[in-house]
Each structure stands twice: as C-alpha cells, then as structure tokens.
Amino acid sequence: MSMQTPATQSMFQPNQMMRRVMGGAFVGVGVISILISLGMLVYLVLDVAMRGLPWIDWQFLTSFDSRFAERAGILAAIAGTAFMMTMTIAVSLPIGVMAAIYLQEYAKESWLKSFIQINISNLAGVPSIIYGLLGLTIFVRYMMMGRSVLAGALTMALLVLPVIVVATQEALRAVPSSIRDASLALGATRSQTIWHHVLPQAFPGILTGNILAASRAIGETAPLVTIGALTYVPFTPESPLDRFTVLPIQIFNWTSKPQAEFHDLAAAGIVVLLLVLLTMNSIAILLRQRVGGTSRRRIG
C-alpha cells in the first residue's frame, strides 16, 4: 500500500476495534472446536451407558456367548483378555525395558543406535492390522501355535513394544545423571548403577508407560481378528495353546449382528471395557503425578 500513496499520518489505521474482535472471535471458535470433540466423547459415553447399563448383571458377567441375547455374557472374553494381557506384558515388559536401557544407558552415538531408534519410531507408525498379518504368518503358521492365546499375546507384545521402549527411555532420561556419576564414582559397575539406582528412580515412569501400553493392547481388535481369534468361544482358555476371544472382539461380534438386542449387549461390553481402561489410566495418572512430585520437578 505504501508504494502507491505517500505515508501520511492519516494512512496509519490501527483498526484496533476490528483486530480485537478477531481475537475474541477466535477464542470463541477455539472453545467451540474443543467442545465439539469433547461433546462427542461425552455423548458417546452417555449413549453407550444408557444402552448397556441395564444389561450388566451377574448373569452377563458370568455367562458365555449365546445365540439368545438374554443368556449371552462376557465370561470367555474377560478370561481371554486377562490371560492374553498377562502373557503380553510378561513378554513385552522385560524386552521393552531392556531395549530402552540399552539405547539410553549403554549405546554410544553410532549408526547402530540411530538405526535401532529410527526403526522403533517407524514401528510405532505401522498400522495395527499389519501386526496381525505378521502374527498370522510367523506365530500362527510358521511356529504352528495355531489361533491360540499365545499367538495373540506375542502379536500384541510386538505391537506395544515401541510404546514401552519410548516410555521407558523417557523415564530413564528423567533420572538425573548426578545419580549415575555418584554411583560410578563409588566403584559400582554400570549394571550395578542401573539396577540399584537408575531403575528404582525411573520405576514409576516405567510403570506408567507400561500401563498405557497395556491399555492400548486391551482395546486392540484388528490384529486379533487377523490372526483369527474366534468370535464364538464357549469356554475359558486354560492353556496358552487354547483358542480364545477377547472383549473388543466380542463387542465387534455383537455390533455386527443385525438384531438391536445384540447392539445393547455390545454397549454393555463397551461399558465394561471402558471401566477397565478408566481404572488402568487412573492408576497411570496417579503414578505420573507422584513422579512429578519427585525427580521431574528438577527440570522445570
């Protein structure tokens, strides 16, 4: 504008009014867009609760699936979820934590370290259904585990491994290096330092990361559908090689049926699943706040 007209005092128009209105309007738009997202969440939870809660009773929690909605329950799904998750964590926690310790405490800056690191962040972006295809070829077919709890648990363990590694690395990074220096200066070896001083400090953070990883695995459906976790399982799995079903698959199964009663059953299953997740995440948040009270505070 200044090219065409000489700069006179009247040319400067602060236009304060308009500019302030824009800011105020944006705050409105911002609040609305957050409320849209959160409103959807609230609506989802309320709707599911209204449909599902009347169906949740002792019979629902202690029965197997059935062709009749009144007799159907989630016993097999709960047992399958609990069994599979126990094995998933038993495999992924030690491997994930050890991998993180290697990357954070042992590896020197080298091509190997950055290769492993980049690889882990890429794995986190692989769609979960691809892990299902991996589990199908490696565990179900090649290792001949069949469509078992074990195959499902190992597939899930690989799926959550990147989450655990990244969370553990973050927890280790938050441990002040003065603690390592002090321990090493007193003659402890590297592994003794990590075992006796670094890990205890990082423990709440590692636990939080693992709970979040587990809550991701509990809700995952696609990889288990792909490895062929059964949708009708009238028994609780006893051995790692038994066939199984899990809560999200049971919900998927009921949602896919045309009858409205089964949709209400699916809603009841969702209520149970959300309650489990809520409990786990509350524990994780409590732990995180406790960490925030001790070592993390130093950084701020």
Binding site: L41, I218, G219, E220, L277
Partner: peptide, 24 residues
Amino acid sequence: MLKPALEVLAGVPTVVYGFFALIV
C-alpha cells in the same frame, strides 16, 4: 485441564468408535 481431556479421545478403543459410527 483441556489437554488431557482431549487425549482421552485417543485412548478410547477403535471398536467403540466403530459401534458409535454404526449405531449412533
């Protein structure tokens, strides 16, 4: 307060969103 509340959306299992899309 709002940031963690938004993160909750990411923690809801996808099968639940599927149910929501089809049934609601």
